[in-house]
Structures are given as structure tokens and as C-alpha cells.
Computed example of a mutant assay.
Amino acid sequence: MKNPGIETTGANTLICGTDEAGRGPLAGPVFAACVVLDAGYKIDGLADSKTLSEKKRNALAITIKTYAKAWAIASASVQEIDQLNILQASLLAMKRAVESLPFTPHLVWVDGNQSPRLKCPVRTIIRGDSLIPEISAASILAKTARDAEMQRLHQCFPLYGFDQHKGYPTKQHLAALQQHGASKIHRQSFAPVRKSSLSQDTLTQAAIPNCC
């Protein structure tokens, strides 16, 4: 359902929603997605990805990719997060996603109150991921893509439990940081990582497959 306070445009206007996933974790890239929905196909169940179960998110991601007019997913690396800060890296990932679309949208709706620099008009919408279907869809694609990447990274760095917490600062993750130190995919600019008592050099390298 559209927020009545948000101005909408004509049926032929290409409106793109964009959102990010992964600003809070201590490890891994930040992801962003953008979606242009097809007005001729209504996708039921779109909502803020954080309110959906993993099973529901994954099912909706398949539907979005199948029936949206266009979609794209992009990311910003751990190195970019540490160099730019997490906000600017998130905006960079959004910019990459929108610029990966096969066309330039007429308008981009961005979740939150900060927007990437784009060549088309942009409007920020606080709580847009729960108000605007296009942003909800982008939220789902970004979240499922990042979760899949953290599952992959768990195979490379099994000491941290990324398959369970996806890099967020859970009790389990913080304990692993203290025990094993930070890996190369941890965000060194984040305080809990900086404060971890051991360095990457102390890791048991035999426990880390050479896949990343």
C-alpha cells in the first residue's frame, strides 16, 4: 500500500525502490538492491524484510526476480566500508544497484533519510521498506543476497558462526572474536573488531579453507 503522503506518478512512470542490508554487522560486505515492479503483476506479501521469516523472504525473492519489470543487486566491500564508513558504503552499493538496471528509472525511492547521488530524481522515505512495495521488494532482495553471501563466507571462515548470525554482533560472534581475533572479512572500523584481543595472524589457518 502506498503511503498517502508520498506523491505518485503516472502508470508509465518507471519507479524504482532501493534499500540496503547489512549496515549493522561486524563482518562481510553491505548489499543493496533496487526493484522496478510490473504494474500488471501484483506481488502479495511484500513487507520489510526484517519482519519476514527466512522461508518467506526466499520465496518472495524468487517471485520478485521472476515478475518484476527489472531488478539489480550490488554490494560494497569490507575494504570500502572501512575506507568510506558504513553509511557511504551503503549509498555506494545503492548507486551501483540502480546504475546496473537496463534502463534509467524516472524516479528512485530510497529507504531512510539519506540518498545516493544518481542521475535521476531521488526521494528518501523513512520506513519506506514497510510502506512502499518497491522498497519492500528491494529490501527482500538485498537481505536474501547478503544472507547467501554470509553462508558462503561461513565455509571460508567457519570459526565465527556466520551461518547463524550473518555477521551481526551476537554474543556468539563477540566471543569468537575474542577467542580467534578478526578475520580479513571483519570490518576493522567497527569498535568491537578493533577491540578484539587477537589479530588475524593468530588464527588457525588450517581451519580456514582457501576459498575467499
Rank of each mutant, 00 (worst) to 15 (best):
residue 98 V to Y: 07
residue 89 A to P: 10
residue 199 S to W: 09
residue 188 Q to C: 04
residue 34 C to F: 01
residue 6 I to Y: 07
residue 50 K to C: 02
residue 17 G to C: 06
residue 30 V to A: 02
residue 123 R to W: 07
residue 188 Q to A: 11
residue 93 A to D: 09
residue 53 S to C: 04
residue 194 R to C: 09
residue 93 A to E: 11
residue 184 K to A: 01
residue 77 S to L: 01
residue 109 W to S: 02
residue 119 K to L: 05
residue 110 V to Y: 04
residue 144 T to N: 00
residue 156 C to D: 11
residue 72 A to W: 13
residue 49 S to F: 03
residue 104 T to Y: 03
residue 36 V to A: 02
residue 31 F to Y: 00
residue 197 S to K: 11
residue 37 L to Q: 12
residue 188 Q to T: 11
residue 178 Q to V: 05
residue 205 Q to I: 12
residue 133 P to T: 13
residue 129 D to V: 05
residue 84 L to G: 00
residue 95 K to A: 13
residue 183 S to A: 10
residue 86 I to W: 07
residue 166 K to L: 10
residue 79 Q to Y: 04
residue 153 L to H: 06
residue 205 Q to T: 14
residue 123 R to H: 05
residue 152 R to W: 07
residue 190 F to C: 10
residue 143 K to N: 01
residue 16 C to S: 05
residue 35 V to S: 00
residue 193 V to N: 08
residue 211 C to H: 09
residue 131 L to N: 03
residue 93 A to G: 11
residue 210 N to V: 12
residue 174 L to D: 09
residue 30 V to F: 06
residue 187 R to M: 12
residue 102 P to G: 04
residue 145 A to V: 14
residue 38 D to L: 08
residue 38 D to C: 08
residue 2 K to E: 15
residue 78 V to K: 12
residue 163 D to Y: 05
residue 47 A to Q: 14
residue 9 T to L: 12
residue 203 L to R: 07
residue 32 A to I: 12
residue 128 G to D: 03
residue 59 A to R: 14
residue 185 I to V: 11
residue 76 A to S: 08
